[in-house]
Structures are given as C-alpha cells and as structure tokens.
Amino acid sequence: MSKKVMWAFATLCFLTAYPLALIAEAPSDTAEVDRIVRKLDDLYRSQSSYGEVEMEIITPHWQRTLAMKVWTLGLEKTFIRITSPLKEKGVATLRIGNEMWNYLPKVNKVIKIPPSMMMSSWMGSDFTNDDLVKEYSFFEDYTYRLITPEDAKEDLLYLECSPKEGLPIVWGSIIIAVRRADTIPVWQKYYDEKGNLMRIWNFGEVRLFSNRRVPAVMEIIPQAKEGNKTVVRYLTATFDADIEDNVFTLRNLRSR
C-alpha cells in the first residue's frame, strides 16, 4: 500500500492511532527503525477523513489566509473547497488518483490540470499540484537509516531517507527529525540530488483529533524563494469519518 510524502496538508488523511511508546534509547535493531518509519507513513492516514483547515500564505508581495474544508477517502481521493476569503469562496479542487480538477465559481467552469502544470503552485501556496497528487511511502519507496547530525539534540532522533532507484522522486534525500519520546515528527528537510536544502517542513502544536495525537500545524518554507512561507493549521479533524463516495465527483465539484 502506498502513501503520501505529502501527508501534512497533501494527504490530509489523518491516520493511524498513535501508540504512546516511549523509547529511551536510540533504537538499534532494524525492526525498531522500520516501526518508526511505518508510523511516520501512517501518521495522518485513515480510511476517510474530514477537516477544516486554515492556510496562511506569506510572500514578500502579499499575505493572505485561505479557509477550506478537506475531505479524503482512502488514498486515492481528495476534495477541497475554499470557504473564505470572499473572492475565492467556492473554489474547489478534486483529486482522484493522479488526476486533478479545479472548479472556478466566477466563470462556473471546471478545469483539468494538465501534466505540464503539475509543478505549479496550488492556489498560490508553496504546495505544488504535484504535492497533492504524488503518493510515496517512506517504508516502501525509500531506504532509510538513523543518523546523528553534528548539531543533534538529545531528545530527537534523525532519519535519513533516500529514494529507491527508478522512482520518479525529485528529492535526493530527506532528513526527518522525530521526537525520541513519541516519534512524532518535528521537522523534515528536503534536499536535491546535489545535497542542497530545498525546503523545510516544520511540525508543531501536537493535538488530539479523533483519538490521534498529530501535529496540527505545518509550516512549509521553500529555500529557493526568500520570504515565502505557507502555514497549514488544522482547526478540526475527524479520522475514519463516515464520508460518502459522491463527495468526490465532478458533479459535487460544480455545486456551489
């Protein structure tokens, strides 16, 4: 079963119940590391989910906050509808597998995102359309190992993940820092193939949603664009909610 690198906002599938195992020592055996990685993969994953999200986009030129509702079903389907500000109210995105459509209420049209636009920004944020579509699993698609960086902190564990060969993953490697105590991620750093830092994801405000303890805030800081930042905040989230399949249809996309 595959899953998403983009768990944070992208998947928006808040997942797996979180076991509160405290690990005092650095895990040494492979099985233990495997367990941490699987838990990362499953952090936000669930059969279905619904959430209300606030997205703050900061650029050197402007700053704005979008409010939206997000539905997910399995790993294949995502539906997002923007509720504010007024100018964007009703704008919606539907993803089914690798395909994406945007609905624009102003012109009452549905637009299919072509493959050439997949690397473009989603609604002006630091997410690309591709971020919403691509699903990768650290456990299955990456090789990983525990590392100890020079500036390692006592209460964190560090994982270095490199994509397996032959996969269309743009990153050269990803460093993930998780809390030693509960293996909840603190940050992820994405590097390109030359080892340049491309973007940083910070996690924060661990909250309990549907009996799951997950970071409620994610901050995406692209390194190439100075002064740009996108902060995603879950206001509410329900995992394994009862969601109808007809949410994820073009007909629903069109309904205002």
Binding site: I57, T59, H61, W62, Q63, R64, P85, K87, E88, V91, N102, L104, K106, V107, K109, I111, S121, M123, G124
Partner: peptide, 14 residues
C-alpha cells in the same frame, strides 16, 4: 477559461 494568480495573491480566473 484562464486561471492564474494575481499580484495580490488571489486566484485570477476569467
């Protein structure tokens, strides 16, 4: 239909 992003950050579409 044209979609893009306006200079004020809003979604430009028309």
């Amino acid at each position: 239909v044209v979609v893009s992003q306006a200079a004020d950050g809003s979604i430009a579409n028309d």
